[in-house]
Nucleic acid binder design. Structure first.
Lengths: 234, 234
DNA sequence: CAAATAGTGTCTGTAAGACACTATCCC
DNA sequence: GGGATAGTGTCTTACAGACACTATTTG
């Protein structure tokens, strides 16, 4: 990018100013991931938040989509993501994270629209408040149904990203509360990874990335489990 | 993103159409990475391509920047990257790859400009043709000098990305010709990693990711080295 | 022969996978 | 005690790191 001194109108080789070029609309679309529980309430698999689209008549088969909005003037992408989610969920995600830009000029028949795909993660509890709202659903990422645009690709990217993060660190997205047992942690990591993880190997790999917290888990049968928390209160 | 049936004007809750909203300009800025040789012509460290900016008068200290351009109508980001490079280099990079969007509304004093940072890689030979051109330089990524905007951050992201790729596979960006010795490969990987790599460990890790090619390397002193090539002609 | 580079044998330490065992709770 | 869950001991395998050795060329 060539740049000029401040407050000076930029003109290119053909003498046109910046404002003379056509500009695309910028959208943000967000895969809000969470965990879906099994019958006993334990984390089972990754779910993704969908919202009902203001669909016109017969296109009912594409009635659900990822939440998104257009970028407003003077707004950052992360702020646009949060704005698009605040209307749908009581608690906003912690840190919208960019995945990639979808830039096919013909991807949106409404015009020239670039979409910046984002990932956000919400704990299941934060999504309880909206579960019965008619305009939102949480579906398994394995079978999200037919989705418009590039939304299936966005979900795949988001899942890939979060799986990578969970292979490196214990619960980096704070799906668990501040204190938890190794069994809780393993259930979450298994749900994210989409496959069972070895009990003893998992424990040994995680122990030096956790700090021992005071107290043990009560309830249920069996020997009570030691509580742990993440390093440095993260 | 809500969507309408084809060829219908989209209007939001306030009845405004898509075109009524202000839209940002979209720029692409690219860190073109290559290898800088030492005195004997062996790859030593990662270099990045800079171009001279059409600087106005006294701002000479920011006279160099990453190549970039504005996105044109109907153009993909990758194509804009290639267009911005074709003017500067004889050979265009193989695959521009998105890094992230820089979206601070105040990052450019010319107006509202989002920049999509990209990574591209060129073999040193492909950059020979422009090395003496007055408007381009290749500088070490460790000490690129003062750069405008977010360009230093872009270079850091690009280096991080390419280092990750080179830890996984042998020369994924084709900095070497089709056939090469293990020693050639190790020199390239050491330059990318920025640190020396163990001779025997490196060899054993790479051997099963390569296919043996016919012939040995001639020249120099010492025992001639077996030639190898990448799997499946990639 | 010496010098130089290519390539291998092998030991050690670390860590994952797997299995079986011990520990401690509730009933 | 029985059932259930938490946590550990330990064997095997694999592999990175390290060092020293052998192999094959040029001069």
């Amino acid at each position: 990018m060539a740049a000029m001194s401040p407050h000076q109108v930029f003109r290119d080789a053909s003498g046109r100013s910046l404002a003379d070029y056509p500009r695309p609309s910028i959208a943000v679309d967000t895969a809000v991931l969470t965990l879906l529980p099994d019958d006993e309430g334990r984390p089972l698999e990754i779910g993704v938040l969908l919202v009902r689209r203001p669909t016109s008549d017969a296109t009912a088969r594409l009635a659900w989509a990822l939440p998104g909005t257009f970028l407003h003037e003077g707004e950052t992408l992360a702020r646009a993501v949060r704005r698009s989610l605040e209307a749908k969920a009581a608690v906003t995600g912690r840190a919208p994270q960019q995945l990639r830009v979808f830039d096919d000029p013909a991807r949106d028949n409404r015009g020239w629209v670039l979409s910046v795909a984002h990932l956000d993660v919400m704990a299941p509890a934060d999504l309880e408040s909206l579960r019965d709202v008619d305009a939102t659903r949480v579906v398994p990422v394995q079978s999200p149904g037919r989705l418009p645009y590039d939304h299936s690709a966005i979900i795949e990217l988001a899942v890939e990203r979060i799986r990578g993060e969970y292979e490196e660190r214990p619960d980096p997205r704070h799906l668990l509360p501040r204190r938890f047992t190794i069994a809780d942690l393993r259930a979450v990591h298994e749900a994210v990874a989409g496959r069972p993880l070895q009990k003893d190997t998992f424990r040994r790999a995680m122990l030096d990335k956790l700090v021992e917290a005071s107290g043990v888990a009560s309830g249920r049968v069996g020997r009570p489990a030691q509580l742990y928390s993440r390093r440095n209160g993260t």
